[in-house]
Each structure stands twice: as C-alpha cells, then as structure tokens.
Simulated scan of single mutants.
Amino acid sequence: MSEKKKEETKVNIVRSLAPKIIKDAKELKRIKPYLDSLKSGIEAKGVTNIAVTGDYGSGKSTVLATFQDRNQNYEYINVSLASFKEEDKTPFNSVDDKGKLKKILDIDRLLELSILQQIFYHVEPKEIPDSRFKRIKSISNKKLKAFALGSVIWLVSFAVLFIYEGLEKFLT
C-alpha cells in the first residue's frame, strides 16, 4: 500500500465518542481503578452522591455504563450537569456599559434546580404529587378518541336541548 493510501486511511478513521459498555479484558483492566472507586464510594457509609467529572469524550459515560452493566444490583439515577451553551465571560458583580450593576447569578440554586428536575423526571408523577415540576403528559389514542366522542355527544345534546326548547317556545 502506498504512503498516500495509508495516510488517507488514517484520516478517514472516525472514533465514536458515544458511551459504550466495555467487555474487552484489556480495556476493563485500564478502567478497573475507576470501577473500584465507584464501588467503594457506593458501599461507603455516609456517601449519598457521587460526581464524575472530566473533559468531553474522556470516557465518563463509558465508565458509568460499564459499572452499571457489571453491578445491576444497585438502582441508578443519572444526572448530567453538562452545558453546551457559550459561557458568559462577564465577571460577577461587574458594571455594564450604562453604569448599572449586573444581576448576580446564584450558581448553587441553578445547579440544585437542574439536579432536582432530572431526578424528578426519573420518578412517576404520582409519587411526587405536590411537586412544582410538571411534565408534558402524553395522552393515549384511546383516551383521545373517548374525549373527542364525549365532546361530540355533549355538543349534540346541548344543541338538541336548546334547539328543541327554542323551537317549542317559538311554536307556542
């Protein structure tokens, strides 16, 4: 194979950054320290949350997916605090061009809100009836057809009642 062909082949190789479950013994050996740390964190007394951080594509989701696959005896809720928006580089408490003090963002509150929303979306709404986080509910076709039929019957009944009474008053 010519040098140019080898170079083109190398350029055309695309690695997926999507999470995967690692089964290969060599790759498992490489992430074993992370899997062990997760296991010891879960089994430690007093630990209620575990955060996994790292750069985009560093393997966080792959480690978690592999751990979950190998430890199915635990219950998991995955919460992501990823942000793909361009960050506002304005420092806190800065003054804008009109001399007004900019609003200070409460980062802790925003993080808590994001975490709570993601946890609530993993739970059935009936389990948290007093929550202010509401979801869009999907209505089954059967319920939609029943509602449409009931509405038509009600409208026809309403029309017949008033038209009939109106006709009766008109005729007498």
Score class of each variant (00 low, 15 high):
Lys4Glu: 04
Lys4His: 02
Glu8Ile: 09
Thr9Glu: 07
Thr9Ser: 05
Thr9Pro: 01
Asn12Ala: 10
Asn12Phe: 06
Val14Phe: 11
Ala18Asn: 10
Lys20Asn: 12
Lys20Tyr: 04
Lys20Gly: 03
Lys20Glu: 15
Lys20Ala: 14
Asp24Val: 00
Lys26Arg: 03
Glu27Met: 14
Lys29His: 06
Lys29Pro: 00
Arg30Ile: 07
Lys32Pro: 01
Pro33Thr: 08
Leu35Trp: 01
Asp36Phe: 05
Ser37Glu: 13
Ser37Ala: 13
Ile42Glu: 15
Ala44Lys: 14
Ala44Gln: 14
Lys45Cys: 08
Gly46Tyr: 05
Asn49Ile: 11
Ile50Ala: 13
Ile50Val: 15
Ile50Arg: 09
Ala51Met: 14
Val52Met: 13
Thr53Leu: 13
Asp55Asn: 04
Asp55Gly: 07
Ser58Asn: 12
Ser58Pro: 08
Gly59Cys: 01
Ser61Gly: 12
Val63Thr: 04
Leu64Lys: 00
Thr66Gln: 04
Thr66Ala: 08
Gln72Cys: 07
Gln72Pro: 08
Tyr74Lys: 05
Glu75Ser: 12
Tyr76Asp: 12
Ala82Pro: 01
Ala82Met: 10
Ser83Arg: 12
Ser83Ile: 12
Phe84Ala: 15
Phe84Thr: 15
Phe84Glu: 15
Glu86Gln: 09
Asp88Met: 05
Lys89Cys: 05
Thr90Gln: 14
Asp97Met: 04
Lys100Ala: 08
Lys100Cys: 07
Leu101Asn: 01
Lys102Leu: 03
Ile104His: 15
Asp108Met: 13
Leu110Pro: 00
Glu112Asp: 04
Ile115Arg: 00
Leu116Asn: 03
Leu116Tyr: 02
Leu116Gln: 03
Gln118Leu: 12
Gln118Ala: 09
His122Ala: 14
His122Phe: 05
Lys126Asp: 15
Pro129Phe: 06
Phe133Gln: 13
Ile136Tyr: 08
Ile136Glu: 09
Ile136Phe: 11
Lys137Tyr: 07
Ser140Asn: 07
Ser140Phe: 05
Leu144Lys: 05
Leu144Val: 02
Ala146Val: 06
Phe147Pro: 02
Ala148His: 02
Gly150Lys: 02
Gly150Ala: 14
Ser151Asn: 11
Ser151Pro: 03
Val152Phe: 06
Ile153Ser: 08
Trp154Leu: 09
Leu155Met: 10
Phe158Arg: 08
Val160Arg: 10
Leu161Ser: 10
Phe162Gln: 07
Ile163Gln: 07
Tyr164Gly: 05
Glu165Ala: 11
Glu165Cys: 06
Gly166Glu: 09
Leu167Ser: 13
Glu168Pro: 01
Thr172Tyr: 06
